[in-house]
Amino acid sequence: MLMPDIIGHGSTESPSAPERYQIEAAAKDIHHFLDQLGIKKFDLLGYSMGGRLALTFAILFPERVRKLILESASPGLLTDGERKQRCMKDAELAHFIKEKGIETFVDYWEEIPLFSTMKRLPLSLREKVRKQRLENSPLGLANSLLGMGTGTQPSWWSYLEKLECDVLLLTGREDQKFCRIAEEMLKSLKRGTWVTIENTGHAIHVEDREKFGTIVSDFLSK
Protein backbone atom coordinates (compact mmCIF):
# COMPACT_ATOMS: atom_id res chain seq x y z
CA MET A 1 0.00 0.00 0.00
CA LEU A 2 1.30 3.44 -0.96
CA MET A 3 0.08 6.63 0.77
CA PRO A 4 1.94 9.59 -0.76
CA ASP A 5 1.52 13.08 0.66
CA ILE A 6 0.23 15.28 -2.14
CA ILE A 7 1.87 18.59 -2.97
CA GLY A 8 1.66 21.10 -0.12
CA HIS A 9 0.77 18.47 2.48
CA GLY A 10 2.69 16.40 5.00
CA SER A 11 6.32 15.84 4.08
CA THR A 12 5.95 16.78 0.41
CA GLU A 13 7.38 20.13 -0.68
CA SER A 14 5.28 23.31 -0.80
CA PRO A 15 6.32 25.36 -3.85
CA SER A 16 5.56 29.09 -3.82
CA ALA A 17 3.74 29.15 -7.19
CA PRO A 18 -0.01 28.37 -6.82
CA GLU A 19 -0.23 27.18 -10.44
CA ARG A 20 2.07 24.28 -9.50
CA TYR A 21 -0.81 22.98 -7.39
CA GLN A 22 -3.34 22.69 -10.21
CA ILE A 23 -5.18 19.41 -9.88
CA GLU A 24 -4.13 18.17 -13.33
CA ALA A 25 -0.48 18.85 -12.43
CA ALA A 26 -0.90 16.94 -9.16
CA ALA A 27 -2.39 14.01 -11.10
CA LYS A 28 0.62 14.05 -13.41
CA ASP A 29 2.88 14.00 -10.32
CA ILE A 30 1.19 10.77 -9.21
CA HIS A 31 1.54 9.37 -12.72
CA HIS A 32 5.28 10.10 -12.68
CA PHE A 33 5.61 8.67 -9.17
CA LEU A 34 4.01 5.39 -10.25
CA ASP A 35 6.13 5.23 -13.39
CA GLN A 36 9.24 5.52 -11.25
CA LEU A 37 8.02 2.56 -9.19
CA GLY A 38 7.09 0.53 -12.27
CA ILE A 39 3.43 0.30 -11.29
CA LYS A 40 1.20 0.07 -14.35
CA LYS A 41 -2.31 -0.59 -12.99
CA PHE A 42 -3.56 -0.16 -9.47
CA ASP A 43 -6.49 0.58 -7.15
CA LEU A 44 -6.85 4.23 -6.15
CA LEU A 45 -8.49 5.70 -3.06
CA GLY A 46 -8.90 9.38 -2.25
CA TYR A 47 -10.61 11.36 0.50
CA SER A 48 -12.22 14.79 0.09
CA MET A 49 -9.70 16.92 -1.87
CA GLY A 50 -7.68 13.74 -2.38
CA GLY A 51 -10.86 12.20 -3.78
CA ARG A 52 -11.16 15.00 -6.32
CA LEU A 53 -7.52 14.34 -7.22
CA ALA A 54 -8.12 10.59 -7.49
CA LEU A 55 -11.06 11.19 -9.80
CA THR A 56 -8.96 13.59 -11.87
CA PHE A 57 -6.26 10.93 -12.21
CA ALA A 58 -8.81 8.30 -13.28
CA ILE A 59 -10.20 10.63 -15.93
CA LEU A 60 -6.81 11.68 -17.28
CA PHE A 61 -5.19 8.21 -17.09
CA PRO A 62 -8.06 5.68 -17.20
CA GLU A 63 -5.80 2.87 -18.36
CA ARG A 64 -3.91 2.97 -15.04
CA VAL A 65 -6.85 2.55 -12.66
CA ARG A 66 -8.39 -0.86 -11.88
CA LYS A 67 -10.77 0.27 -9.15
CA LEU A 68 -11.52 3.75 -7.83
CA ILE A 69 -12.69 4.58 -4.31
CA LEU A 70 -13.93 8.09 -3.55
CA GLU A 71 -14.58 8.98 0.08
CA SER A 72 -16.61 12.16 0.61
CA ALA A 73 -15.54 13.51 -2.77
CA SER A 74 -17.05 15.41 -5.69
CA PRO A 75 -16.43 15.98 -9.41
CA GLY A 76 -16.22 19.72 -8.75
CA LEU A 77 -18.78 22.45 -9.33
CA LEU A 78 -21.09 22.40 -12.30
CA THR A 79 -21.39 26.05 -13.36
CA ASP A 80 -18.98 28.91 -14.00
CA GLY A 81 -20.85 31.04 -11.49
CA GLU A 82 -20.44 28.45 -8.74
CA ARG A 83 -16.74 28.07 -9.51
CA LYS A 84 -16.14 31.82 -9.51
CA GLN A 85 -17.85 32.24 -6.15
CA ARG A 86 -15.90 29.33 -4.65
CA CYS A 87 -12.60 30.73 -5.96
CA MET A 88 -13.27 33.97 -4.10
CA LYS A 89 -14.00 32.11 -0.86
CA ASP A 90 -10.91 29.92 -1.24
CA ALA A 91 -8.74 32.99 -1.89
CA GLU A 92 -10.06 34.58 1.31
CA LEU A 93 -9.28 31.43 3.29
CA ALA A 94 -5.81 31.17 1.74
CA HIS A 95 -5.11 34.75 2.82
CA PHE A 96 -6.38 33.89 6.32
CA ILE A 97 -3.94 30.97 6.57
CA LYS A 98 -1.00 33.09 5.47
CA GLU A 99 -1.89 35.93 7.83
CA LYS A 100 -2.94 33.98 10.93
CA GLY A 101 -0.80 30.86 10.71
CA ILE A 102 -1.45 27.16 10.89
CA GLU A 103 -2.68 26.90 14.48
CA THR A 104 -5.35 29.57 14.07
CA PHE A 105 -6.44 27.95 10.83
CA VAL A 106 -6.72 24.50 12.44
CA ASP A 107 -8.78 26.05 15.27
CA TYR A 108 -11.13 27.44 12.62
CA TRP A 109 -11.16 24.22 10.55
CA GLU A 110 -12.13 22.07 13.53
CA GLU A 111 -15.24 24.19 14.08
CA ILE A 112 -16.73 24.12 10.58
CA PRO A 113 -20.01 22.15 10.33
CA LEU A 114 -18.44 19.62 7.95
CA PHE A 115 -16.43 18.15 10.84
CA SER A 116 -18.99 18.51 13.63
CA THR A 117 -19.41 14.73 14.01
CA MET A 118 -15.72 14.35 14.85
CA LYS A 119 -16.38 16.00 18.20
CA ARG A 120 -17.92 12.70 19.31
CA LEU A 121 -14.59 10.92 18.93
CA PRO A 122 -12.33 10.16 21.92
CA LEU A 123 -10.09 13.05 22.92
CA SER A 124 -6.94 11.06 22.17
CA LEU A 125 -8.02 10.48 18.57
CA ARG A 126 -9.04 14.12 18.08
CA GLU A 127 -5.65 15.22 19.39
CA LYS A 128 -3.92 12.86 16.95
CA VAL A 129 -5.85 14.35 14.02
CA ARG A 130 -5.09 17.87 15.23
CA LYS A 131 -1.38 17.07 15.48
CA GLN A 132 -1.36 15.82 11.88
CA ARG A 133 -3.09 18.98 10.70
CA LEU A 134 -0.63 21.22 12.55
CA GLU A 135 2.29 19.51 10.79
CA ASN A 136 1.17 20.87 7.41
CA SER A 137 2.78 23.88 5.78
CA PRO A 138 0.72 27.13 5.86
CA LEU A 139 2.06 27.98 2.40
CA GLY A 140 1.20 24.51 1.13
CA LEU A 141 -2.37 24.65 2.43
CA ALA A 142 -2.92 28.18 1.14
CA ASN A 143 -1.61 27.34 -2.31
CA SER A 144 -3.63 24.12 -2.37
CA LEU A 145 -6.75 26.23 -1.96
CA LEU A 146 -5.63 28.59 -4.72
CA GLY A 147 -4.43 25.94 -7.16
CA MET A 148 -6.45 22.83 -6.34
CA GLY A 149 -9.62 24.22 -4.79
CA THR A 150 -13.05 23.13 -5.91
CA GLY A 151 -13.48 26.40 -7.79
CA THR A 152 -10.26 26.17 -9.78
CA GLN A 153 -10.47 22.54 -10.87
CA PRO A 154 -12.34 21.53 -14.02
CA SER A 155 -15.87 20.24 -13.61
CA TRP A 156 -15.71 16.48 -14.19
CA TRP A 157 -19.47 15.84 -14.07
CA SER A 158 -19.78 15.19 -17.81
CA TYR A 159 -16.79 12.82 -17.70
CA LEU A 160 -18.25 10.41 -15.13
CA GLU A 161 -20.12 8.39 -17.76
CA LYS A 162 -16.82 7.73 -19.56
CA LEU A 163 -15.24 5.92 -16.61
CA GLU A 164 -14.94 2.18 -17.30
CA CYS A 165 -13.49 1.10 -13.95
CA ASP A 166 -15.46 0.00 -10.89
CA VAL A 167 -16.13 3.03 -8.69
CA LEU A 168 -17.08 2.97 -5.01
CA LEU A 169 -18.59 6.13 -3.53
CA LEU A 170 -18.43 6.32 0.27
CA THR A 171 -20.28 8.91 2.33
CA GLY A 172 -21.15 9.34 5.99
CA ARG A 173 -24.88 9.30 6.62
CA GLU A 174 -24.66 12.59 8.53
CA ASP A 175 -22.74 14.34 5.75
CA GLN A 176 -25.87 15.32 3.85
CA LYS A 177 -24.12 17.51 1.28
CA PHE A 178 -21.84 14.73 0.05
CA CYS A 179 -24.63 12.17 0.21
CA ARG A 180 -26.53 14.34 -2.28
CA ILE A 181 -23.42 14.63 -4.46
CA ALA A 182 -22.87 10.85 -4.40
CA GLU A 183 -26.48 10.22 -5.31
CA GLU A 184 -26.10 12.43 -8.39
CA MET A 185 -22.73 10.94 -9.33
CA LEU A 186 -24.15 7.42 -9.21
CA LYS A 187 -26.62 8.28 -11.96
CA SER A 188 -23.74 8.86 -14.43
CA LEU A 189 -21.38 6.03 -13.48
CA LYS A 190 -21.47 2.86 -15.56
CA ARG A 191 -20.03 0.67 -12.80
CA GLY A 192 -20.71 2.68 -9.68
CA THR A 193 -21.60 1.59 -6.15
CA TRP A 194 -22.63 3.96 -3.37
CA VAL A 195 -22.35 3.02 0.30
CA THR A 196 -23.30 5.22 3.24
CA ILE A 197 -21.93 4.58 6.72
CA GLU A 198 -24.21 5.22 9.67
CA ASN A 199 -23.24 7.55 12.52
CA THR A 200 -20.42 9.18 10.57
CA GLY A 201 -19.84 12.47 8.81
CA HIS A 202 -17.21 13.63 6.32
CA ALA A 203 -14.12 11.80 7.63
CA ILE A 204 -15.42 8.22 7.63
CA HIS A 205 -11.95 6.65 7.77
CA VAL A 206 -11.37 8.43 11.10
CA GLU A 207 -14.86 8.20 12.59
CA ASP A 208 -15.38 4.48 11.92
CA ARG A 209 -12.07 3.08 10.78
CA GLU A 210 -13.05 -0.59 11.15
CA LYS A 211 -16.21 -0.37 9.07
CA PHE A 212 -14.47 1.80 6.49
CA GLY A 213 -11.68 -0.76 6.14
CA THR A 214 -14.10 -3.66 5.83
CA ILE A 215 -16.13 -1.98 3.07
CA VAL A 216 -13.02 -1.01 1.12
CA SER A 217 -11.49 -4.49 1.46
CA ASP A 218 -14.68 -6.18 0.30
CA PHE A 219 -14.91 -3.89 -2.72
CA LEU A 220 -11.31 -4.50 -3.75
CA SER A 221 -11.56 -8.27 -3.35
CA LYS A 222 -14.53 -8.68 -5.69
Rank of each mutant, 00 (worst) to 15 (best):
M3P: 07
M3V: 15
P4I: 06
D5Y: 08
D5C: 05
I7Q: 06
H9Q: 15
H9G: 05
A17F: 13
P18E: 09
Y21P: 00
Q22E: 12
I23R: 00
I23Q: 01
I23S: 01
K28Y: 11
D29N: 12
I30A: 09
H31V: 02
H32W: 13
F33A: 09
L34A: 04
D35A: 09
K41A: 14
F42A: 04
G46D: 01
S48T: 05
G51V: 01
A54V: 02
A54T: 02
L55S: 01
T56E: 06
F61K: 07
F61A: 02
F61M: 08
P62S: 08
R64Y: 14
V65N: 00
R66W: 07
L68Y: 06
E71Y: 06
S72P: 00
P75L: 03
L77D: 07
L77F: 07
L77Q: 02
D80E: 11
K84S: 14
Q85N: 13
Q85I: 05
R86H: 12
R86F: 03
R86L: 12
C87Q: 14
C87F: 04
D90F: 03
D90L: 02
A91Q: 08
E92Q: 14
A94V: 03
A94S: 12
H95T: 10
H95E: 15
F96G: 03
I97L: 07
G101S: 12
I102R: 07
F105E: 06
V106P: 03
Y108C: 03
Y108W: 14
E110T: 04
E110V: 06
P113M: 09
T117I: 03
M118F: 08
P122M: 08
L123T: 14
S124F: 10
L125N: 10
K128I: 10
K131R: 14
Q132Y: 10
R133W: 15
R133T: 05
L134T: 10
L134F: 11
E135H: 09
E135W: 01
G140A: 07
G140W: 02
G140V: 05
L141T: 04
A142E: 04
S144L: 05
L145R: 05
L146G: 03
G147A: 08
M148C: 13
T150H: 09
G151N: 09
Q153R: 15
W156P: 03
S158M: 13
Y159V: 00
Y159D: 15
E161K: 15
K162N: 11
L163G: 00
L163I: 07
E164N: 14
V167H: 00
L168T: 02
T171R: 01
E174A: 08
D175H: 02
K177I: 10
F178I: 00
A182C: 13
A182W: 00
E184N: 15
L186K: 09
L186D: 05
R191F: 12
R191G: 05
G192M: 02
V195W: 03
V195P: 07
T196K: 13
I197Q: 01
E198C: 09
H202F: 05
H202P: 08
A203T: 11
V206P: 08
E207C: 04
E207S: 05
E207G: 02
E210H: 09
I215P: 06
S221V: 06
K222H: 15
K222E: 13
K222V: 13
